[in-house]
Design a protein around this nucleic acid. Structure first.
Lengths: 123, 123
DNA sequence: TCTATCCTTAACGTAAACGTCAGATTTGAG
DNA sequence: CTCAAATCTGACGTTTACGTTAAGGATAGA
């Protein structure tokens, strides 16, 4: 599959795919024949994973650090320890975000109820 | 309190404060005497709230929509209904984010455990 | 073979959220 | 009163994550 279909199936533009490649998020693949990029389902899964992580608010730089874990086998003990560090930091951040988000949700609900009640009273 | 101390107590820079003012997130306050901005604890609470919302990934534009609810009394039925719409949309987004974030957290834990186990085995 | 469509690189444009000067004015401590 | 420190208003610079031409080469169906 070439870049057009590849990008479309992931819900992004070809430009985005090339940009990610330039950042090292997607590998420089086979360039058969006329210099076109060809992708497989494996690469597609990777791109979709990137989108999920982006949706969680990770920057592309952060994703570049985490994404290899899903698709490559990092080798060496020191590398693993480093990755462990990073992941634990992300875990802590994530849990703090979860807490804030729950608080935010409850604030939202309170406000919604308050306004709804005001509307009901003045209907 | 003037802008320097104000900004510092909120963990931002004076430039950020002026920027927020230009967006309408913080009011154009009293400009006693020589044209300096003077702030109170109330404004500080507002600025801190803005920081929390930012930490949750809301854009300044989105915050501009939500923040008045915490500190001002929006008036009029039509306004209330509109605000209600926006808040409900935010609530839905928030709940989706919560779900994704929980998934992300569980993925992280899985990876951490996997790596930790690998390290233990090869220690 | 022709042509419509897809692909290539290179380079400039954009929006958000500030940072960073420059040059003038105000404040407050000594 | 004096003078360094803080503040003021522009205005241009920066980063992230792409969008958007421009000018050409490759591919596939009629």
């Amino acid at each position: 599959m070439r870049i057009g279909q590849f990008a479309q199936r992931a819900g992004v533009t070809p430009r985005t795919v090339r940009y990610y490649e330039s950042l090292g998020l997607l590998g420089p693949n086979e360039r058969e024949g006329g210099g076109f990029r060809y992708y497989t389902e494996v690469e597609l899964a990777r791109l979709q994973k990137i989108n999920v992580l982006k949706g969680l608010g990770l920057s592309l730089d952060e994703i570049a650090v985490v994404i290899p874990l899903y698709f490559e086998d990092s080798t060496g003990l020191r590398g693993k320890r480093k990755v462990l560090e990073i992941l634990n930091a992300h875990l802590q951040e994530t849990e703090e975000k979860l807490e804030s988000l729950n608080q935010f949700r409850s604030d939202l609900k309170t406000n919604i109820d308050r306004i709804q009640q005001w509307i009901d009273e003045h209907a």
